[in-house]
Design a protein around this nucleic acid. Structure first.
Lengths: 195, 195
DNA sequence: AACTTATCTGAACAATCGTTCAAATAGAAC
DNA sequence: GTTCTATTTGAACGATTGTTCAGATAAGTT
């Protein structure tokens, strides 16, 4: 056997990334072998190297695409009246975006240490970029006199940490709707930064 | 060569766990080999098996001891006047305890998926146990009419997530003292659950 | 139908993995 | 000083790792 029936790079490429995403997310980058990824796709390990120069690049691409999409989506949020409205919008966006992509989010955080220093620096820059959008809201709110926040950087990190916590427990089939979760968290966030 | 000078199980045992803790925390359980741990201790890989039946047990013991110490320490907190005082005390305790043990905390979260199902269940039970102490505070506060919290479980998870966020950025040599950090987070937590 | 190109196989590579164990030697006990 | 025991070495085991590549075959082009 050699080339198989129905083989096509437009199909195999995405399937490889999808399989890698799934496996990396569940077992971790270091614990997943190229052969396991290949098996999930239904292909031999050697075939993967038509789509990625190496395992590291496969991980990096998954993380980079995710972060890029996060930034692009955040940039498309409509303008708001004031910082409180902006914060509310951000909370809703963040929760929804992340709950829709549990695997990507998990990897983007857990596998940072498995990136080469160069790749790490690039992903880290994207992450900072995203944090800056939230910090910008806090700074604007300080100017407008709407927040009790004294340290916008800490507030940013604290709020993002709290929101990320949703991912550890929320399940679609659970007792709470997405709207309800959003409301609960918005209440807590709003109270934590206003009086 | 065989037994080496100064060899003693009272010394080697703890050194192995310390080395494993360090390496697991920095590179991840799956990415660390028994030979790397042994090298850090200054011993051959085979010697490790006098102190652990296998790699998995080494990880499990580190996590179990950490969680047990967390629970014991939390149990020793003095009684308080009301739920708000209890919450304040908990916030301070949680931040300090965790900032003192960055490696243990990191492992206890990141390496959960590398535990066998049985070991995972045990660690998970300890974690739930700890969460219950915080949830108990919220429930008590609801009874006392001190909190705006409607869902004590979600409030528990949200607050713990927010507090854990400290670990991602706080450094002793930074511009903020531990007291200042504690104060900032207590302000946010207090506001988020009261009116 | 003939030819070119894209895709995959299957075997092989050296390196590394967790773990076992007989042999060797240091420390402890008498 | 002799004996006993605790501790470590060092080699070995089979399994698995990421990666390469010549050869084979399907898809695409003419």
């Amino acid at each position: 056997m050699a080339r198989t029936q129905g083989s096509h790079s437009d199909i195999t490429g995405p399937r490889i990334r999808k399989a890698a995403l799934r496996l990396f997310s569940r077992r971790g980058y270091a614990a997943v072998s190229m052969r396991q990824i290949a098996a999930e796709v239904g292909v031999q390990a050697g075939a993967l190297y038509n789509y990625t120069p190496d395992k590291q690049s496969l991980l990096f691409r998954l993380m980079q695409e995710h972060m890029q999409e996060l930034l692009n989506s955040a940039a498309e949020l409509p303008a708001t009246e004031n910082a409180i409205e902006a914060l509310k919008q951000f909370v809703g966006f963040h929760i929804r975006f992340h709950l829709q992509r549990p695997d990507e989010v998990f990897i983007a955080y857990m596998e940072l240490r498995n990136l080469t220093p160069e790749n790490f620096a690039e992903i880290e820059a994207l992450r900072r970029n995203y944090e800056d959008t939230l910090e910008g809201i806090f700074k604007q709110g300080q100017v407008e006199g709407l927040f009790t926040v004294t340290d916008s950087k800490i507030a940013t990190l604290a709020v993002i940490a709290m929101l990320n916590g949703v991912m550890t427990w929320y399940r679609t089939e659970g007792r709470l709707t997405l709207d309800a979760v959003e409301q609960i968290y918005w209440d807590m966030v709003r109270r934590s930064v206003t009086r």
